[in-house]
Write a protein that binds this DNA or RNA. Sequence first.
RNA 1: GGCUCCAUGGUCAAGCGGUCAAGACAUCGCCCUUUCACGGCGGUAACUCGGGUUCGAUUCCCGAUGGAGUCACCA
Length: 481
Amino acid sequence: MEKVRTRFAPSPTGFMHIGNLRTCLYAYLYAKKRGGTFVLRIEDTDQERYVEGAVDVIYNTLEKAGINHDEGPDKDGGYGPYIQSERKSLYLDYAKELVDKGGAYYCFCSKERLDGLKDGNGVAKYDKHCLSLSKAEVEKRLAAGEQYVIRQNVPTSGVSEYEDMVFGHIAVPNEDMEDNILIKSDGMPTYNFANVVDDHLMAINYVIRGVEYLSSTPKYNLMYDSFGWERPRYMHLSPIMKDAQRKLSKRYGDANFEDFLDKGYLPKAIVNYIALLGWSPKGNEEKLTMEQLIEQFDVDGISKSPSIFDEAKMRWLNGEYIKQMSVDEFVEVAKPFFEKSKVKDKYDYKALAKLLIPRVEILSEIPEKVDFLEEFGKYDTAMFEHKKMKITKELAYGNLLAIRQDFESEDDWRDENLKQRGMALAEKLGCKSGQIFLPLRLALTGAATTPGGATEMAELLGKKESMARLDFSIELLKNEL
RNA sequence: GGCUCCAUGGUCAAGCGGUCAAGACAUCGCCCUUUCACGGCGGUAACUCGGGUUCGAUUCCCGAUGGAGUCACCA
């Protein structure tokens, strides 16, 4: 059986966009699913867009995402170099070979002449002007050191076709394709060309990339044909959208892997979620590990239409991953967020973690959930009115006074003990326990939703602080009655 | 605009001629509970429109509409 080889070929232009990461993921999943090889290649032929350090971002992202490439700049598999700028010398020779085979030709046209070709809309299609140059003429101008580019020679009639693995049959009229530049005047190859040469040389037989290449793929195939190389199979992927009209992109922010990490998303959850954006597993289970993704990945499940990125769902998934964490694991990933909060160094993170795990979906919620421990003051007492529990401000006030008196002598301030005590008090007063605990929780925190029940909050705060807050709240209520 | 594609709830999506059209997120309600959560149960909500083909179309074909991509010495 043919050995599958796929690749991810990013340009080092900055952070890793979530859409790129998904393309990468699918290429990885497909290779692994078929027992093949996944190759990382850096496409840095455009020197102008190169960003310092961007290659490290790529390595870093793949590692965090759990995508392990089998070959790449740092893992030689015998098909290197894996960085295009280091392969520079290769391309010109192949371009010349293509010229000899009739698949390309030299072009000496000036920018001015090219501009003159543009129509009213500024759209130009090259007119194959230099294709008619005689071989002798070309030699002469080359020898004279004239600046040139090499263009692909696309047939002017007929139709180019191929079978895409997700979109099916694709047919493009040759006359709609242009003679694109293969070798730029600086001697560097364009993406189109470097891609074909490298994919062939690296024995990539499954090309997985964004739909933006769907309709230009026939041009790639034409090159493979001219060279006499075997065409790869193609799998094109629809884009991830921000909404129905706009593509999810850096321009709108929050589209990078790093951004989500900063917001407190777990790499596993991000990967799991984007795997589901544009692909659906056969079964109903959506929370899947990388192993399960590999196991279940299937071209059949890939969707042809663009999908809108839904952060709410990723958030839910993230919460699911957090819920299954141990206290230690949680403290480890949550630490930076604790440090950003007001409780920094003042509380036992483990104790907080226990309460937070079932209540937090993304880590950046931590400060807002925990700041009340250090921040307490005047709040809206309307919260004490609770219809369903039959609690009014008057009742709350009365119960709070009773609680204060009853708890005063208690020195065991642990959650369990306080809970018992509260229950006993409720019985003594002949009221529902909720009528004790709800007012107490509010009096202690001043917040409608808290990361735990009344007595858990009390334990965290300690007796001294708890009593002080009780007094404060009692006073606050008293003034309003 | 030309060309290439795409079209099921608010979102992700199953479906591949006959289904009361799955499931998940979101949303709403109920239950559990000792208050916040977790959890459990249930509800609302979709085949873009018009022609065909067929005994029968969400499903196949054509058209319209809407959307995406592409038309660089960027990838």
